[in-house]
Simulated scan of single mutants.
Amino acid sequence: MITMPTVQNHPVTSSNSLYDQDFYQWLMITVKLLQERAIEQIDIDNLIKELEETAKRTQITVKSNLRVLLMNLLQYKYQPSVRCETYQSSLLKHRLRILDIFAQSPSLKPYYTEVFDQCYLYARKCAVTQTNLPLELLPETCPFTQEETLNLDYLPQ
C-alpha cells in the first residue's frame, strides 16, 4: 500500500515548487488531491505537462518496438543463414509489447498505421548496419503488411 504524504507538510512557493524538488511526492499529493476532489489545490500546469509527456512516451514506445520488430523481420527474411531462436524470441517480445499497448489503449492503433512506413525506413537502415547487407537488397517499401508484422505466428520466408 502506498503511503500518501500530507499536503500540509510542504508549503510550496513558485521558486521552490514541490514538482521540481520531489517529483514522487508531488505525484502522490496530486493523486490525493484528485481523490479528494480538491481541484483548486492541484498544480494544474504541471499535471497537464505530465499527462502530455505520458502520452508522448507511449507513442515513443510503440515506435521503438515497431522499429526493432521490423528490423528483426528484415534480418530474418534477408539473412536466412543466421536465423535462430533469438530472432524469433525478439519478434515475439516486440509484437507482444505493441499488442499489450493496444489492449490497454486501443486509440493508439491509428498511430501505428500512421508511423508504420517511417518506422520501416529507420528499421531498414538499422538492419543494414547490423547485417552488413547492401541497402539495395532491402526493399524501399515494407515487404510486410501491418497485419503480418503484428501476427504472432508470422515468419517471413
Rank of each mutant, 00 (worst) to 15 (best):
E148F: 02
S14P: 09
S64E: 12
E136Q: 14
L150V: 05
V128Q: 06
H10D: 06
K32I: 01
L92G: 04
S15C: 12
K109D: 01
K77H: 14
R37A: 14
S90Y: 06
L96A: 08
Q88H: 07
P11H: 09
Q118E: 06
Q25M: 09
E85G: 14
Y19D: 07
R83W: 13
R67Y: 08
D43I: 01
L47K: 00
S14W: 12
T141L: 04
E36T: 10
E36N: 13
L133S: 05
L47F: 01
N9L: 10
T129L: 08
S107W: 03
N16T: 13
L121W: 02
S89D: 06
R83Y: 12
M28V: 02
K125F: 09
I44L: 14
E50S: 02
Y154F: 15
Q21W: 03
Q118Y: 07
H10F: 15
L96M: 14
I42H: 02
S64M: 06
N151F: 05
K109T: 00
V12D: 07
A127Y: 08
L69H: 12
I98W: 12
C142I: 04
D22I: 05
H10A: 05
H10C: 10
L69Q: 09
E148T: 03
S89K: 13
N72D: 12
L96N: 15
H94F: 15
L155F: 12
Y87K: 10
S89I: 04
S105V: 09
Q88K: 14
T86Y: 11
